[in-house]
Simulated scan of single mutants.
Amino acid sequence: MRALAEFIMRGRLQATLVVVGAAVLPFMFWLSAAAGSLVLLRRGLSDALGILVWALLPALAWLYFGDPRTLLVMLGSLALAMQLRNQAPWSRVMLYSIGLGLLYTWVLLQVFGGPIAALAGEVQKALPDALSQAYQQLSDEERGQLEALLVPVLTGLLAALLQALTLLSLMLARYWQALLYNPGGFGSEFRTLRFRALPAMLLLLGMLLGPSLDVHLAALTPLCSVPLAFAGLALVHGLVAQKRIQRFWLVGLYVSLVVFMQLVYPLLAVMAVVDSLFDFRGRASRKEGAGSDGEG
């Protein structure tokens, strides 16, 4: 990773090769977005503009062939990188990503409306078997409401995936920047990610009440969960660093996140909400400070 970051920052030609080459390759658009964000974070928009314009060409080509993901993730990560360069904290950047997620939702509906509706139809057919007796106990009106939520929720899930990829691309760029110019800076920066009580509660309400307020707001459930999940990961990283616990537990966390996504992902969001109220990392640091004073 360091060698690639050094190659990107070696000059305009090298950066252009990586940004454009990754954008051309299928499923490598996240790397292009990360490389472009690195140039923007380090050199600013004016110096990086020439490179970024070239990077938009393959993204627009993918859009022409019906795939907007490269363009969305690239522009989204660059927009968030601008905020990060302007000294915005990670908590605010995470909140801004929800706005990007809403934009992604609208674009996905315009481009993939037909396939998403077809997928919702297949899910609708599987609901009686999946929910078993619970589905049979629903009234016709409740079944209609449940079926009406399928398209917004599926679109929101796809948008949330792009939202998470956008944030991961930005994090990779920030990690590269710290690796080259501020070793260890990204780790300490990420471990401080924490939402205050009000934003965390608003995110929680968006997850829980969005579908009941309006069918189209059902997309807020997955979109609002993404910042909370990242804050939950930051909480675990922070506690591991403070308690000097073996990093093996972090490996176990990410393996569990992949294998037991349906269980671990909501747990991370809940942990972030609880941490917004009790500040576990702050309490742990204060206890360590008090313990050190007592020993002295």
Score class of each variant (00 low, 15 high):
S132Y: 08
A23H: 08
V93I: 15
V107L: 09
L31H: 07
E189A: 12
A160M: 10
L235T: 02
L167R: 01
Y254A: 14
A34E: 10
L131G: 04
F186V: 07
P89N: 08
A219E: 00
A23Y: 01
L213G: 04
A81D: 08
T221C: 07
D47C: 01
L233Q: 09
M9A: 14
E122M: 11
L13D: 08
S212M: 07
R92F: 10
A34Q: 06
L17I: 15
F29K: 01
N86M: 09
D279F: 13
P115E: 10
L203E: 01
A34P: 03
A284P: 02
M82C: 09
V273Q: 03
E122R: 11
G44D: 03
L131W: 09
L38P: 00
L72E: 06
A59K: 00
A164T: 13
R143H: 09
G238K: 00
G294H: 12
G113Y: 03
Q137S: 13
L38T: 04
K243R: 15
V107H: 02
A178Q: 09
L95D: 05
R286S: 12
S212W: 05
R92S: 13
E147W: 00
G21T: 05
G113T: 04
A160I: 11
K287C: 10
A117E: 10
E142S: 12
M28L: 15
L41T: 00
V236S: 09
E6L: 12
Q242S: 09
M28F: 15
V123T: 09
L131Q: 06
F278G: 06
L161I: 12
V53W: 06
G289N: 13
V264N: 10
E122N: 11
L38N: 02
F260N: 12
S292Y: 15
L179V: 11
L52G: 02
E288L: 15
L179R: 11
V39T: 06
L109T: 06
P26G: 05
L228W: 02
A117S: 14
S225M: 08
Q262I: 14
L80R: 00
E295V: 15
S91Q: 11
R43K: 11
F280N: 04
I245R: 15
H237C: 03
L40A: 05
L45M: 07
G252N: 10
A130Y: 08
A173C: 14
W90N: 03
L253I: 04
D129R: 13
N182P: 05
P227Q: 07
L56E: 09
R244A: 13
V24R: 04
F7M: 08
L31G: 09
L60N: 03
L56A: 10
L253P: 01
S188F: 08
P222I: 05
V270W: 13
